[in-house]
Amino acid sequence: MNIEEGLLKGEKRACARLITMLENNDQGAIDIIKKLYKHTGRAYVIGVTGPPGSGKSTLTDRLTKELRKKNKKVGIIAIDPTSPFTGGAILGDRIRMKDLSLDKGVFIRSMGTRGSLGGMSKATWGAIKVLDIYGADYIFIETVGVGQSEIDIVKIAHTVLMVMVPNLGDDIQAIKAGIMEIADVFAINKADLGGANKTQLEIEMNLDLNEKKDYRPSIVQVSASKNENIDKVIKKLSEHRKYLDETGEMIERRKRNAKLEVIRLVEEELMDLIMNKALEEDMLEILSEQIISRDIDPYSAKDNILKLIKK
């Protein structure tokens, strides 16, 4: 299988294999991305985030079906948590997207977080590029179910869709820092179950206090399982995209995200470089023993490790 050619032709197997290679840190995959990078930048990336069980997968399924009516090609990356103890994971987002498996214009990939804590995996950045080259018009990134501070999605998405559910918390939850600050569009899902008006009011009151008023996130009440108001969510996403394009904010976001990505890559590589050296010399093991016997403090231990690359 020629991955490069296959990907440019929009073949799913090539797309899938390249993502696997990226997940496994394969240098060959990075070389392919380097070569094909000029083919990226077309796709519109929507981050779908929110608490566990709020309906992110089901809503993504419905939004995708709506976009397919307009013949848009859609890529979906669905992330679920990896066990920090065994490295294993149950990736179960596809269960909500069964009908999309056979759609020629849809590619779905499940990913484990593999040690990342921000709601995504390291390879997500690469996978987006793969789907972009593959030809997706829209890419949905569905994060793990988030609590309060997993906000990495904001570093990658053009628009963040926050999927809320009624009756989760009071108005104090709405004014806390963290995930409530990153939404461009709020979808209050399961609105058919009641309590959605109160949740909407709490979010509205919180938005009233925003000092930066150039864009006010919109709120839509929706029921993904009953297929109600899906078109309204699409409309609000499009409005946000239009705002980004017209105000130049899209370019600002892309630039900011590019910076963050480079910093992240440098961090990763530096970290590997240092830690591989430290592990080679068994330094971490020795230093940790010295720390607990109070022969050395953690700050000096850090200095010792950094000396490895300062030389």
Partner: peptide, 28 residues
């Protein structure tokens, strides 16, 4: 399998062979 350190993609009930194959390919 999860506890043995594997990534398990669970597709749920009532899958056609075509759906299973499509998922297997996309998930590689």
């Amino acid at each position: 399998l999860r506890d043995a350190g594997m990534e398990v993609i669970y597709t749920g009930l009532r899958q056609t062979p075509e759906q299973i194959v499509a998922a297997a390919i996309q998930e590689d």
